[in-house]
């Protein structure tokens, strides 16, 4: 009798431990939200995921690509966020663009509202051949303008890619430099020049 009870209790324990379902996304998010605190400019609302962030997290988690219709819907939505320069001038100063590409500061809790954000392009991309300290998370952009020319299509595509990369690749790893307000319109013009100006070291 006693033995039986012990055995059945053990069975229940085994069953309940095996059957305990994995934490859901909602449960995990609840734990995450109680595990962080606001510090400086990095407030807790940064943990509120957009739909884009949520579906792309799911892609990384499951290793399954987005269904075609979802991908198309997201890319269309993101395309609508792109703001082209009001004065129609897409290219600024490549020298200032190099400074933006080198600078990595901005939007960390150690920064503040006055921090001039960088683009940190070299963290992930090769650009000017003189800079050998470049990352490889993104493709090499050495010779970007020389290889592609500067037709209106190339110029607009490049602007859009920097403004909101998800318009062209739904779950790209690259930040939305324009859409998320990381860089100003003037800074993006300068980075554009770094990529497309024939005098930029990128195209030498």
């Amino acid at each position: 009798m006693m033995m039986k009870t012990v055995l059945s209790l053990a069975a229940v324990a085994v069953l309940s431990s095996c059957a305990s379902p994995a934490p859901t996304h909602e449960e995990t998010m609840k734990v995450v939200k109680s595990s962080f605190k606001a510090r400086g400019i990095a407030k807790l609302d940064r943990l509120d995921q957009s739909e884009l962030q949520q579906v792309c997290s799911e892609v990384a988690l499951t290793g399954k690509d987005l269904p075609k219709d979802v991908r198309e819907r997201i890319e269309k939505q993101q395309m609508a966020t792109i703001k082209y320069p009001a004065d129609g001038k897409f290219l600024g100063d490549w020298k200032a663009g190099e400074v933006v590409a080198q600078a990595g500061r901005g939007l960390q809790w150690t920064d503040n509202e006055k921090t001039v954000n960088g683009g940190n392009c070299y963290a992930c991309h090769q650009l000017s051949p003189q800079e050998i300290s470049f990352g490889n998370i993104g493709p090499s952009l050495k010779g970007y303008g020389k290889l592609r020319g500067n037709s209106e299509a190339v110029v607009k595509y490049t602007w859009g890619k920097i403004w909101n990369t998800h318009a062209y690749n739904a779950c790209s790893s690259m930040p939305r430099f324009g859409d998320a307000g990381i860089l100003t319109e003037a800074q993006i013009k300068d980075v554009m020049a770094l990529l497309l100006d024939p005098n930029s070291p990128v195209n030498k």
Partner: peptide, 15 residues
């Protein structure tokens, strides 16, 4: 499992 989910959780201004 929560750790795995958080590891893959995109968020913040840089996504």
């Amino acid at each position: 499992e929560r750790g795995r989910q958080l590891f893959n959780m995109r968020g913040g201004p840089y996504d």
